[in-house]
Design a protein around this nucleic acid. Structure first.
Lengths: 188, 188
DNA sequence: CATTCAACCGGACCAGCGGTCCGGTTGGGC
DNA sequence: GCCCAACCGGACCGCTGGTCCGGTTGAATG
């Protein structure tokens, strides 16, 4: 037996409650007491399901980006393996930026909760590795590993907000322009 | 009267104690109780001097980077106003990276304490503006403002640690290579 | 040097947090 | 219908950032 019915029900309730608090209230001050209360559940339940604050945020983020992950590993062009590396990179950045723009609060919470442990986060690992692969495929002479991390570092909640204040979509545009400049830079 | 003698003494004691805790102990778990105790001072004193945890970290960081700031505004080449923009950019990145490598714990603490308020931090504002100016001087066609923030975003404590694990100085090299690629990218 | 008082100090205190624990409850296989 | 492992709630703990106030001290003044 994998998981009892009430356990499943509570897990979903907690995830939805957290999402609700995160989007309705502005900041990322989401306390686990509040999440438990909003979910109509005891605090112990939250911790049994998710282990810790970081675990909850992580799972929330993973849920949000699951579709993207699948599209990348075995979806159609331009995200999937069929497309050219450059197209995959641009499409991936656009898609991830879309998630970022619409989940700024979640990103903030993630930065705060998982600070100094990004590399253990499966979502982050996947993103970084995908970026590195696709950059390396297009430009084997560049430091693809570093550039992947650097591009992800640009998904800073504060920076996204700053760019969004210029207008919707400005973040994606600037990010893609930067990636294009890197890919088009003259080789050594 | 600006500040009483004992006030000045305590301010320095607190700053030094914080620095000591930050470098001696690994993590950024530096609690203000601990800082006060290490400084041989009451907790109230810490808060009266620095307002909050963020204020303390901020001032610490500012102290660390004061020399760099002065060198940039009116020092000699390659940092100062006399040098060519490209040289200034590279030298500035190298210098800042040096600070970053040697103060990883401080950077972590800063990220954690000042998250979502970077733009209010005077040090950060100065850095971002300087980067934007110098990038814009070399490549007016690029989005210098965004690129400045993006370059600073790469000063992620986790990323620095990751690069340092390859070997000393690897972070600077990769960072400068990225900046060079951006500056050398073909115009539109 | 004595007086005076605003600036300063220490640490008790508070509210809220992440995380633990355990006595009671319940789902579901037999 | 029985039974027990899985699950639940919420009281509880230790710690943290931040506040407050009665007592102390530096230094300007005469």
């Amino acid at each position: 037996m994998a998981e009892r019915a009430d356990a499943v029900r509570n897990r979903r309730a907690v995830l939805e409650a957290a999402q609700r608090l995160l989007t309705e209230r502005g900041g990322a001050h989401i306390s686990l007491d509040a999440v438990a209360a909003e979910a109509g559940v005891g605090k112990g339940t939250v911790f049994r399901r998710f282990g810790s604050r970081a675990g909850l945020i992580r799972e929330l983020l993973e849920e949000r980006s699951l579709a993207l992950r699948e599209a990348v590993t075995d979806g159609p062009a331009p995200l999937g393996p069929g497309a050219a590396p450059r197209e995959r990179l641009m499409a991936f950045l656009a898609e991830l930026a879309g998630i970022g723009e619409q989940n700024a609060a979640l990103l903030s919470a993630h930065e705060q909760a998982c600070a100094d442990h990004k590399h253990e986060d499966p979502s982050y690992r996947f993103w970084a590795q995908h970026l590195a692969e696709v950059i390396s495929a297009e430009r084997p002479d560049l430091d693809a590993d570093f550039l992947g991390h650097a591009l992800l570092a640009a998904f800073d909640a504060d920076l996204i907000r700053h760019m969004n204040s210029r207008g919707p979509g400005e973040f994606v545009i600037a990010l893609q322009a930067m990636a294009a400049a890197l890919l088009d830079s003259p080789g050594k």
